[in-house]
Design a protein around this nucleic acid. Structure first.
Lengths: 200, 200
DNA sequence: AACGATGTCCATCATATGATGGAAACAATC
DNA sequence: GATTGTTTCCATCATATGATGGACATCGTT
């Protein structure tokens, strides 16, 4: 039951955000009483943290997958692999994109465990892309650049119901358009610079 | 008074979103009673629409400025001008970035006037960049690409308190990092393709 | 000064929401 | 079958919030 509540909370928090999701909505979605929810998860905030924690763990798994599949591959291909994996994951779990973006806006204490640690994600990607040898040596520029792309992925997916009609494409092609767009923007930028620095 | 309420509402809605901003918060910010607020603006939703309307008008003005300053300038420079103008404007009015992003998530009727019409913005930029001769002829690809950059701008600014410490830069350099990052990503991507197509 | 229009505040209402206590159902162990 | 621990539900509370009605104030016009 605790797990069923978590799953429902994850979906609803993702759809409506923290404030616009009531404990009663979640309870009704699972067909239980509100007090049962509180029995298992304590207060609303605790349930929310449970959701964030689970999502965080999932994302870290995906990054490890990126790292595994990027070994002995050149930069352009590494970027493509990273985009493909993250897009596939997020399109399959679109509530994750929403949850992360909602997190930006929460006026909570951003030092808490509650927060999804974006910095960690960014650094992980940078290292997986071999833009730097270790997490400590990732430059501000590279982090900012990865961040920009990470934003784009999240926004394309969190705002899919908004942007898809605007682009006038069906759901399946939309995935393709998003991937192509990201690759189009990202790959030339990074590979061009790397080639230039290698020439010297 | 009506204007003072609007200004306060704009700031607070931008900080907290629609649901987490109460009419009492706004009233207290302007040092008036809640009923005075309702007297001037009707229900909360109407006030919110007032804010969105004002912001929308402001943004359209900026796009016209972009268009003016982009005449008789080559593509790379046009892109830089657009990024500079929009970044300067949004860094000066960061609540605008928040309001637009909050709009993505609102579960409202997205056909209403309430919505900030992103599609219109995107098309306007594409035409100003001379990626297409008329608004009707802007391709899906170009719209998606502009959209991706537009996302990045908004996220960098809406999430500035989140990302700036993460990048470990001071407020002033942060603006520079954001602009540089956007240009780094955007300019090569678009100019490379244009050059390629012009070569043939 | 009288009057009406406009603006502002106080008191109040109805509702939604987070949360809890206690009773009842259920399950496991002896 | 009794006992104990766990889970679920019903009833209820305290509070926050959107919203309104009516009284008072302010100001310009006559």
């Amino acid at each position: 039951m605790k797990a069923r509540i978590l799953a429902s909370a994850r979906r609803l928090f993702g759809e409506n955000g923290f404030s616009d999701t009531t404990t009663r909505m979640i309870a009704r979605d699972v067909s239980i009483d509100v007090s049962t929810l509180h029995y298992h998860w304590g207060e609303k905030q605790d349930l929310y943290e449970g959701v964030i924690g689970a999502v965080h763990a999932e994302i870290m798994e995906r990054f490890q997958e990126v790292e595994r599949r990027c070994r002995d591959v050149d930069l352009a291909r590494r970027l493509e692999i990273a985009i493909d994996i993250m897009c596939d994951y997020l399109f399959e779990h679109p509530e994750v994109a929403n949850l992360i973006l909602f997190g930006y806006f929460r006026k909570a204490d951003h030092t808490a465990v509650l927060d999804i640690n974006i910095s960690q994600y960014i650094t992980n990607i940078a290292v997986a892309m071999e833009l730097a040898p270790t997490p400590e040596t990732v430059s501000v520029r590279d982090r900012a650049r990865i961040l920009a792309v990470w934003h784009s992925v999240l926004n394309f997916i969190a705002g899919r119901n908004y942007f898809r009609p605007m682009l006038d494409v069906a759901p399946v092609p939309y995935v393709r358009v998003v991937k192509e767009t990201l690759k189009f923007i990202l790959v030339p930028a990074f590979t061009a610079e790397t080639q230039a620095s290698r020439k010297s």
